[in-house]
Nucleic acid binder design. Structure first.
Lengths: 283, 283
DNA sequence: CTGTTAGCGCATTCAC
DNA sequence: GTGAATGCGCTAACAG
């Protein structure tokens, strides 16, 4: 039959199975940091590409962080073939209705019922901070992500552990993934701890902002202070100095999440993807 | 009835109207320049957001440039609620079947049957080049886009006209929208015309590459040579020196194109969106 | 286990 | 004009 070029009609199937023909991508958070994040575009692009093979489409939903009902409302809608939640919080995931079990995946932390496809932030951070230590840095500061993002916890923990091993005090400053905050964080760090010799930001955009902030302070990178980012966004290699960072297979992660949902494969509770150090000029 | 919260079922409607529940985004070209272009992500994000309101989804398709049949094959598939073609060539648009008339839009050049939503490249280029002239530059070179991209023609034409008005000779070098090519183009330009005092690239990524190339040659920007880009990508404001460019409402354009298709509004043959000069440090 | 049938929710058609 | 019937292409439930 397939030899005759038969292709099932997605709409008809969706109608009768009451299952919908679209894959919703829900991004938690509506701050500028999230809206402008190229990361979301990469996830969406990969998902839309996977969806194309299955005759379904993807839709994008930005959900407010502090409205627990919004995810449930989205998931209740008809026409939903599946759901991929980006950067979820665990409480938010608890609100997805049972009916969607097996058709939900998370890019970020997951729960017992929602399989997670995520970057191994712990190992990634460990790799970056160890690189800083290996190249002679000892007074290393870290700019974190938004406090509500659970994925940042593992990274901060890894940073603390490496520093503890070297006997150094942690110097943690809160960030929000924006470049503007990076510039501010740089000033804050150099004011509080003037002898800082390295800054690790949990976001490339923030790291680029740190580069800017340090430049404005007259601090040379990497001579005086090394700077490292996280994610390896497209521009990381184009900044001056080119940004040392850790690269993540975002496309691969998003593709796997989309496939897991569309193919109703029950994935492992958590699948970690490697974070790989990319040494450029800034550290 | 709507007061009772009635929402039509998209799948059922799609089934009976044989019209599909997804909006396909077809991107013409499979070169690295297109695949890595953040522009596509922005278009897709906007389209997916519009689609979300309509209970439909979007799918993404990268079409080879030299396979005229690919667009027709895509358009023939069922499940297609509409089609938005990004960066189309006119011959490619001619291949979309009649059945889709009224449900196709182009982001880029259009045809009689395919309404176009596009940046006013002519006015944008005019604005940038005039700015260079106004700030004292006279020997201005231009790095174009891929030759097959029709949208570049208007820009090159505008560039030539401004230069003609100043009595200067055009210095046009072919580009491909990549940063790597920008670096190469910079070398090429400074070799062929060593007295060049400004470079305008029809792509920010290329302009950033030009910045790199000039830096390697020991040329100071903007003191020796001014550099201007086109598009105002996210990183344009973060490069050093920050890139002077022209900003485009990509989200607005993509949203309008998606709406035109999904709402079956017959749009004007061409809708131009403004290109607005953003003066930063590089020019 | 194979073959048949009812019906998903809507738009279109036809009868009135 | 308003209202009932048909069928889009498929899956699930059922009968043989």
């Amino acid at each position: 039959m397939a030899a005759l070029g038969y292709v099932p009609d997605a709409s008809a199937r969706a109608l009768v199975t009451r299952t919908g023909t679209r894959l919703a991508i829900a991004v938690i958070g509506r701050t500028a940091a999230v809206l402008d994040d190229p990361y979301v575009g990469r996830v969406l692009t990969s998902a839309a590409h996977v969806a194309a093979e299955r005759e379904v489409g993807v839709s994008l939903h930005w959900l407010p962080l502090h409205d627990p009902g919004s995810l449930a409302r989205l998931a209740d809608g008809r026409g939903l073939g599946g759901l991929v939640v980006v950067n979820p919080t665990r409480p938010a995931l608890e609100t997805v209705p049972r009916a969607l079990r097996g058709r939900v995946a998370a890019v970020g932390v997951g729960t017992r019922h929602v399989p997670s496809f995520d970057v191994d932030n712990r190992a990634g951070t460990d790799g970056v901070v160890r690189h800083l230590v290996r190249t002679g840095r000892r007074r290393i500061a870290m700019v974190t992500g938004p406090s509500w993002l659970p994925c940042g916890d593992r990274a901060v923990e890894a940073y603390r552990q490496v520093l503890e091993a070297t006997g150094a005090e942690p110097r943690v400053v809160p960030g929000d993934f924006t470049a503007a905050r990076g510039a501010g964080a740089a000033v804050e760090i150099m004011t509080r701890w003037p002898d800082t010799d390295a800054v690790f930001a949990l976001s490339d955009l923030t790291a680029l902002g740190v580069l800017d902030g340090l430049h404005a302070l007259g601090v040379r990178v990497p001579d005086d202070v090394a700077v490292a980012g996280f994610d390896d966004i497209a521009f990381a290699g184009l900044s001056r100095p080119a940004l040392t960072t850790s690269t993540h297979p975002v496309e691969e992660i998003a593709t796997a999440a989309a496939r897991a949902v569309l193919d109703r494969r029950d994935a492992a509770e958590t699948t970690f993807y490697p974070s790989a150090l990319v040494v450029r000029e800034s550290a």
